[in-house]
Write a protein that binds this DNA or RNA. Structure first.
Lengths: 334, 334
DNA sequence: TTGAAAGCGCTAACAA
DNA sequence: TTGTTAGCGCTTTCAA
């Protein structure tokens, strides 16, 4: 009753051929005569043969599995990135293993992923964490980084063009509200993307001859709770004149929207609001959220292709790709 | 300049021992004298040795990697489940590979996961999909199902006690609003959990002597959009008397909340609302959402432990675990 | 406590 | 077109 997993030898025996032929049927069928191939395939089917992946990978030195490390699982941002990456990987005949370094804790990536089984690795790095960087870049696997930090390591990288999107958003707000009533509700002050967005906001204000007061740019975290908290204290005392807020991401904007509703501040009449990311969330807020679209699908797909290309050509020159962002104006800011 | 990956033989040579000893240091250090072990460890360090996972797995027939298949990546529900599962897996010395069958399309699970490399598999099945079920249960791997469907296959299973939570929610609403003004906004009519929740709602109403009209129970999908759409048409024409709504999950409830805000319907004064899942979303809505808590962390952790136990004892009797749910009353319904 | 040697299941020269 | 055979890098008896 207890049948054990069939081996290639079982298939060979049943089909009356050698194991080499069985292997060929699976890996390079063009080398086998149709008749034999047919017989072998039938034997495989009957036995329910599935090649042992370890033995195969041991020889071919390839598992066709890629790993991807994200800062977190929560939120639409990473979900969408992940989905795009997975689709691209699948299309290229690879599988994707996911890990979150939030879960990995302080250990290094090596422990959070079955690195021994991976052909390559994609890491989304949002904080300047030298040890994480070291542990990733030092791997013998092919590595692609998604990050906006500056560093000198030799790796393939994708960075988000935060500055240009943030500038567009700020310009858009400045066209409607004087600079003195424009605010930036930022993400973590140690986060690469958050910093770039805040910097671009400040720079744009400066170019308009306004130097932002300290309370016009505040850092917190990428969460609705932070946006809500900020708005409750900052907007409560607002004059009736309209205010403009550029949130560092859509989650924050969402929290601000909630606070506005509690405070009875009409959006967009008295509060012009723009978020960042353009993830699913931005389309289900009310009113719909203006946002700076990050091409998550493009980033996910490109990360995979860079990684696979490096696997194929380990010695090729390293590349840096910039993912462009673009402002989408919806009802929250017009 | 181009150093290749060090092998166990390199370590052995450098430490002046045999490969067997190196292997022992890594796998059963108690069999090696402290001095030798020390020397070997040093050699490993210097060489940056990492054992080849394929070779190792080929012998031990174990990768210590588990796969988990979810219907989708989006939403807090799966994120939380995933996080719990991953934590449990990590604690047990396993890695987790994630896949979503939404992405797998019509292909079977076998193609959506690197099954050849997995010691076990956890599948969240929400629709009656015989072929999916077959392809999962037929695997030689250890399998755990998270589903609330009925079937006769021999597998370890975890099911959510939808009925009891749904009954509590309905009772809670019936205590405040007459049965004729109680509604259930359901999920997909083919979804196991959605059906159980709707059924329990109907049964509870019946027990209170009310047979629900057809418009009191409607099925849609597990999305805010559906909740919003339902509310816009159902609540617009409502009399001023309070209405009670039991949403099949928090996302739907969230959409209803949005619609209520647009329609100017005060919650909880004119609309008592209860969701289901108790995921992160339910704590950031305004007002805070009453909900039926599903113990996602427990489910994730239990799924992992069931799977690992089956790996250890393949012949042990199959088990069925029920995850209990419980009503949490917050400001949206009191 | 250590080493020698036989595989794990498969692929890929090399022969035939 | 097919078969023979030598490993891939590691673990694990068995002996010493």
């Amino acid at each position: 009753m207890h049948r054990k997993t069939p081996l290639i030898t079982d298939v060979a025996k049943r089909a009356g051929v050698s194991t080499a032929t069985v292997s060929r049927v699976a890996n390079s069928p063009e080398l086998v005569s149709p008749a034999t191939a047919q017989r072998v395939r039938q034997a495989m089917q009957q036995l329910g043969y599935r090649p042992n992946g370890f033995a195969k990978a041991l020889i071919t030195r390839s598992s066709r599995v890629l790993g991807i490390v994200l800062p977190d699982f929560f939120g639409d941002f990473y979900s969408e990135l992940l989905r795009a990456a997975d689709t691209a990987a699948r299309d290229a005949g690879y599988h994707l293993v996911v890990s979150s370094d939030a879960r990995a804790g302080s250990e290094d990536v090596a422990s959070s992923l079955p690195l021994n089984f991976l052909d390559g690795l994609i890491a989304f790095i949002s904080f300047p964490d030298p040890s994480l960087l070291e542990s990733v870049v030092g791997l013998s696997n092919s590595v692609v980084l998604i990050d906006s930090g500056e560093h000198t390591h030799d790796v393939d990288r994708i960075r988000i063009d935060n500055a240009s999107g943030a500038r567009s958003a700020t310009e858009h707000l400045l066209a409607q509200v004087p600079a003195s009533r424009c605010y930036h509700v930022g993400g973590p002050s140690s986060n690469f993307d958050a910093v770039e967005r805040a910097t671009a906001f400040a720079a744009t204000l400066s170019e308009h001859g306004a130097s932002p007061a300290s309370n016009q740019i505040e850092h917190g975290e990428f969460s609705a709770a932070w946006g809500y908290a900020w708005a409750m204290q900052a907007l409560e005392a607002q004059p009736s004149a309209p205010v403009a807020v550029f949130a560092a991401n859509d989650e924050i904007a969402f929290g601000i929207l909630q606070a506005a509703s509690v405070l009875g501040i009409a959006v967009p009449e008295r509060l012009k609001l723009v978020g960042f990311d353009g993830a699913r969330l931005s389309t289900i807020t009310m009113p719909e959220l203006s946002t700076v679209q990050v091409p998550l699908d493009e980033i996910g797909a490109r990360a995979i292709s860079l990684c696979i290309e490096r696997i194929r050509a380990p010695q090729s020159p390293y590349r840096a790709v910039t993912a462009s962002t673009r402002l989408i104006v919806r009802s929250s800011s017009r």
